[in-house]
């Protein structure tokens, strides 16, 4: 929605400025996003005492913030790639702006947008720095609620590989690495399936 708004509803300097901002956000190290998530926890713990502590919900929010610029950028690029002829075809028939977006521009650019979303999910899956500061904990097990700390594979790999005492412990790291690779592969397979089958229906 942000990408659509920036490309379709702003112009000139404002559009350039917003695109620049999201480019900067996209290039930001994930540890900075983690610090931002940590500041949110501090804000809701000390300044507005809602008792918010590191947990799944803050990590999810921070990861969403981390990948948002990728999705916005993919959306802007996809909309930019729609040929002018196609862009004008519905407008010349009296389509309103939102109708043109919904009926012509989005179906015409849904594939690259979807690819951007899948890549962003992949980025969120493998990121460690953000969750380290916002909710992940060693040996936390399954969280009982969205506000509880949790365990994550990238963090598990990081902790086990940096603190192992016996070479056998490294075998857990290898297994966890393989599981992450499998998860990423499954995501790519799902994205290909969506692109080839389901999105075809949406476009028609």
């Amino acid at each position: 929605m942000i990408g659509i708004y920036i490309y379709e509803y702003t112009d000139g300097k404002i559009r350039e400025f917003l695109i620049f901002i999201f480019k900067v956000l996209g290039g930001m190290p994930s540890i900075v996003v983690g610090i931002f998530g940590f500041l949110i926890i501090l804000f809701f713990f000390k300044i507005i005492p809602l008792g918010l502590r590191p947990g799944l919900i803050v990590s999810a929010f921070s990861l969403a913030l981390l990948v948002l610029p990728y999705i916005v950028h993919a959306t802007i690029l996809a909309l930019h790639a729609v040929p002018l002829k196609e862009r004008l075809s519905a407008l010349s028939l009296g389509a309103q702006k939102y109708q043109n977006i919904f009926y012509i521009l989005l179906p015409g650019s849904i594939k690259p947008i979807f690819s951007g979303i899948i890549l962003a999910i992949g980025r969120a899956v493998e990121d460690t720095a953000v969750i380290m500061l916002t909710g992940v904990a060693a040996m936390a097990g399954h969280p009982s609620s969205l506000f509880q700390p949790f365990e994550a594979l990238p963090f598990f790999i990081y902790i086990r590989s940096s603190e192992y005492r016996h070479p056998d412990e490294l075998s857990y790291v290898y297994i966890a690495s393989v599981i992450i690779i499998v998860i990423c592969s499954v995501l790519i397979i799902i994205s290909s399936y969506f692109q080839n089958k389901l999105l075809g229906k949406f476009e028609s």
Binding site: E86, A90, L91, S92, L93, K97, I104, S204
Partner: peptide, 21 residues
């Protein structure tokens, strides 16, 4: 609200451009 006018003044491009439907 340009769309109100475009429904009264119809434009047809040089290359026929039927939608892919």
């Amino acid at each position: 609200d340009y769309w109100r006018i475009r429904r009264k003044i119809a434009y047809i491009a040089q290359e026929p451009d039927p939608l892919s439907m």
